[in-house]
């Protein structure tokens, strides 16, 4: 069995301590988290955690079963490739003297990124995309000098009409 990345959506009770229970479980069972993102759902009492974890199918099965044992976990679904709608938001601050601005604006436009902040010496761009496109965008900006990057971690929904609530 080969190791690969799995995207797992988890609905949990929205109260203090839940995140530490989840991250503690991953740590003590030796599961590798690649990224983790949390936010409240349409129901205020419920949060949605999206975890990208690495492992073979046995590990994935154990992750799901062990998560299930947490009383605060309401629902879990690991979404497979073709059904997966996933996005991550990246903020990226690059060195940019006034004479380079036009060039960077063009790059942003071609890639569907937004300009979110400009200073005398820098420009901050924002891009929401899947992981691969984010990496490609980062590569593209490297020659300008990357000063800082912040990424949210992947969030995901299943494509089509189905939802985790149903």
């Amino acid at each position: 069995m080969t190791s690969r990345f799995h995207t797992i959506s988890v609905l949990v009770e929205n109260h203090a301590g839940v995140l530490s229970r989840i991250s503690g479980l991953f740590a003590r069972r030796g599961f590798n988290i690649h990224s983790l993102a949390v936010g409240v759902t349409e129901n205020e009492a419920i949060s949605r955690i999206t975890i990208v974890a690495e492992g073979d199918n046995y590990i994935l099965e154990q992750i799901e079963k062990q998560l299930h044992k947490l009383i605060d976990v309401i629902k879990i679904r690991s979404v497979k490739g073709a059904e997966l709608l996933s996005r991550e938001l990246m903020l990226i601050k690059v060195s940019c003297s006034p004479d380079k601005r036009a060039e960077l604006v063009a790059i942003a436009e071609i890639n569907g990124a937004k300009i979110s902040d400009v200073s005398q010496t820098t420009m901050t761009l924002e891009l929401s995309a899947n992981e691969m496109r984010l990496s490609a965008f980062e590569e593209l900006l490297k020659p300008y000098g990357i000063k800082e990057i912040a990424r949210t971690g992947v969030i995901a929904l299943q494509k089509g009409a189905n939802s985790l609530n149903s």
Binding site: G17, G24, R28
Partner: peptide, 14 residues
């Protein structure tokens, strides 16, 4: 204690 005992409880409440 809820933090310290977390790996060893089925569940805990503060």
């Amino acid at each position: 204690i809820t933090g310290a005992a977390e790996p060893f409880v089925k569940h805990s409440y503060l």
